[in-house]
C-alpha cells in the first residue's frame, strides 16, 4: 500500500458517505473540513468504514490524524502495511 493508494481509500469512503460532495479537486494538504462539508457524524463514518472495509482501527484519540488526506496517508499507510504483513 502506497501513500497515494491510501489517499484513494479515504477518498472512496468519502465518496460513499457524502455522494453530494465534489471530490475532483480535493487538496491533500488542506484540512478536509475546510474544503468539504463534513461534520463529526461524517468523520465517525470514515472511521467506521475503515474498520468495516479494511479492518483498520482508529482510536478516538487519533481522530486528529484524519484531518487532511496527507495526514490520513501518514497515519494510515503504516497500519495498512502492518495489517498486510500479518495477513
Amino acid at each position: 500500500m502506497t501513500k497515494d493508494e491510501c489517499k484513494q481509500v479515504v477518498l472512496d469512503i468519502i465518496a460513499d458517505i457524502a455522494p453530494d460532495e465534489d471530490l475532483s479537486n480535493v487538496k491533500p494538504e488542506v484540512r478536509l473540513r475546510d474544503q468539504l462539508q463534513l461534520d463529526s457524524m461524517d468523520f465517525l463514518d470514515i472511521v467506521m468504514e475503515l474498520r468495516k472495509r479494511h479492518s483498520i482501527e482508529v482510536p478516538e484519540a487519533d481522530y486528529q490524524h484524519l484531518a487532511s488526506l496527507d495526514s490520513c496517508a501518514e497515519y494510515l499507510t503504516p497500519k495498512f502495511i502492518a495489517l498486510a504483513a500479518k495477513g
Binding site: I17, A18, P19, Q37
Partner: peptide
C-alpha cells in the same frame, strides 16, 4: 448541505 435532511441521507446511505 448541513441540514437534517442531508445528514439523514448521508448517514443512511
Amino acid at each position: 448541505k448541513g441540514t437534517p435532511l442531508t445528514k439523514l441521507l448521508r448517514q443512511l446511505r
